[in-house]
């Protein structure tokens, strides 16, 4: 749920990186953090275990610049990917404006990816969101690994609706900013759509090809 503050002329939006354990959600945020100029970012917070696995969430506030005199700020969050942290994942999805699903391209992680997408759909549903309606981008990460599944295969399994998707290698940054820019753009377009009169048409969302839940 975006937050518009007329007093400070700011708009804040929340983007959540979702995906199975060890798919690279935190690595995405770390790359963004490392490559963003200090004046455009706040501190990155990682609530992690001693073995560097995300325990609750990572958080990175980013400023993108101004639109019509309003500073646009994006708060990036990751969820803990491990299956047993489901209660925490639900909490982090509260008030989300846009979702990035980070898939692990390795063929043996396909089942974990599918399970995680399904988990995302259910958890969003519990918060009153429909995965087919929220601004949503899919990232196929770890494209550099030799056991990566083909792009066609990943698309078929993980993106039947054909939302914007990107190949990535988050450790070197390939595809990281493309993914972020796209989801930010979709969030802003959704914001515009939400600001229009209720009778107005809704032209700016990506096409929906799947069933509407």
């Amino acid at each position: 749920m975006s937050f518009i503050n007329y007093s400070s002329r700011e708009i804040n939006c929340k983007i959540v990186y979702y995906g199975p354990g060890l798919c690279g959600k935190t690595t995405n945020l770390q790359y963004v953090y490392n490559k963003t100029s200090p004046d455009a970012k706040g501190k990155m917070i990682s609530l992690a275990t001693e073995t560097e696995r995300t325990l609750f969430f990572d958080f990175l506030p980013l400023s993108l610049g101004e639109i019509r005199g309003f500073k646009t700020r994006f708060h990036l969050y990751t969820v803990p990917g491990q299956v047993f942290y489901d209660a925490s994942r639900k909490l982090i999805l509260k008030g989300v404006d846009g979702v990035v699903f980070v898939a692990d391209s390795q063929i043996e992680r396909m089942e974990a990816n599918l399970e995680s997408v399904e988990n995302l759909r259910i958890n969003l549903g519990e918060q009153g969101y429909d995965l087919d309606r929220v601004p949503y981008v899919v990232q196929y990460n770890k494209r550099d690994l030799p056991n990566a599944a083909s792009l066609d295969h990943l698309r078929r399994e993980l993106n039947p609706r054909g939302v914007p998707d990107f190949e990535a290698t988050a450790t070197t940054g390939v595809g990281v900013f493309d993914t972020l820019k796209m989801v930010a753009k979709l969030v802003l377009q959704e914001l515009r759509r939400g600001s229009e009169a209720p009778t107005a048409a809704a032209p700016s969302m990506p096409p929906r090809r799947g069933p509407v839940g």
Binding site: I11, I67, R68, G69, F70, L188, G194, S195, P198
Partner: peptide, 19 residues
């Protein structure tokens, strides 16, 4: 209440200019 939002007016160019 329905109110004028600054974002009803933004264009694709406005959004693109951020990136």
């Amino acid at each position: 209440l329905p109110g004028a939002s600054p974002f009803a007016e933004i264009s694709d160019d406005d959004i693109d200019s951020l990136f």
